[in-house]
Design a protein around this nucleic acid. Structure first.
Lengths: 212, 212
DNA sequence: CTTTTATTTAACAATTATGTTAACACAAAC
DNA sequence: GTTTGTGTTAACATAATTGTTAAATAAAAG
């Protein structure tokens, strides 16, 4: 049942999922209201319980999806072999930055919900750890080889490097409402700020790995 | 009325404030329950309304205080003149890092509450912006002078530099529950991780400003 | 066409949270 | 000792929120 009777391209179930995503992303689990979700989706609030039984069910559906996407974003950003190391890293930073720019609310949402209920994260955790370990292993090998060749500084821990990158990429989006006043309020200011930010992050990381 | 009848060093009002801080910091405004706060403070839940009228009042009391502290932490960290520029920055990074290490929940709390209710931030915003502008102006001058002398790279925007620093310092604490699996679960692992992290951030920033 | 299944709605039930009030206790001030 | 102000409690009121159900409607299957 993908189409409803009036021919719209998605069912009410999908409409609820979309509305729930917006509500949960902006207000978190505790702040979200099932009636608001129902209203935004244009359905009676009983529908929500009909399709998903409970608020928790609906929420987990959203959270799981978002954690998966967020994890993948890191893997796909840096999992592009075939480029020279420096280019691979530059490319990874930019891909990851673009992903966050397109999904600026995701990190705050995930961080919060995992923090406020770590057991929700349990299942996902092992899966992510496994995939992450492979990426880390690959990149570490490449870094070590490049270090032997004198192209980059020695003794880099790739886990720390990736954490540098995601910190620099994510935090400005998370903190933007607070730091806005320092960089200007107009939409133009905002765009300029994030363009500049992307370059800043690339520069910072390339300097970090450079052999001096 | 600072002492209660049983001679404890703080009144029930203060006990409520402490309990409220823990509750709000860990669950946010929406997730916090006034009865939980009252129970944790060891008072009847009517007391809470007697002293603070509403949950919102109590919350604002906490949020204002926390925003003030958070803002000050940046200013005091970097507002130490008299040191050579590089040392001043290293010192600032370490001070700021130590502050976050001592208050790891603060950034997530503030970012969330400001995001979910920006109007709460309005009053504070202008005040912070003003103080920030002076710090920024001072540091920018010093950076420009150092650049002319050939000690650091030219054309650094100090706002971006400070944002680099607070991103690197704050994000690892915020994301720790998620990335824990990559760095190990034991308390020892945790401590080792954050010690390493502090050095990583100093290294990254000093390389960022270095004249190559 | 009839039966069955899926979808939708309105009304209601139960629980939980916040906020109020009136009575009570206790100490200090007069 | 009475009054006054502060602190404290239990019980209640109100509103919001989640979840249920039974009946109505539409769609699909036979």
């Amino acid at each position: 049942m993908i189409k409803s009777k009036d021919g719209l391209p998605y069912s009410k179930e999908a409409a609820i999922l979309e509305a729930a995503e917006r509500e949960f992303l902006s207000k978190g689990f505790a702040g979200a209201r099932t009636v608001s979700i129902a209203k935004a989706a244009g359905v009676n609030h009983a529908m929500l319980h009909y399709y998903f039984r409970t608020k928790e069910h609906l929420f987990e559906r959203i959270l799981d999806e978002k954690m998966r996407i967020m994890g993948e974003s890191v893997l796909t950003a840096f999992g592009q072999p075939g480029l020279p190391l420096t280019e691979r890293i530059r490319d990874g930073i930019e891909r990851h930055f673009d992903f966050i720019a397109a999904n600026p609310d995701l990190p705050r949402f995930i961080v919060n919900e995992v923090f406020s209920c770590p057991e929700r994260y349990g299942a996902m955790q092992r899966r992510v750890a496994l995939i992450a370990h492979r990426l880390i292993y690959d990149l570490q090998q490449e870094l070590d080889t490049a270090a032997k060749g004198g192209d980059v500084v020695e003794a880099l821990d790739v886990r720390m490097l990736i954490l540098d990158i995601i910190s620099l990429n994510i935090f400005p989006f998370v903190a933007y409402p607070i730091i806005e006043s320092v960089f200007g309020y107009s939409p133009d200011d905002r765009e300029r700020f994030f363009m500049q930010r992307k370059q800043e992050n690339v520069e910072t990381i390339l300097r970090r790995i450079k052999k001096l």
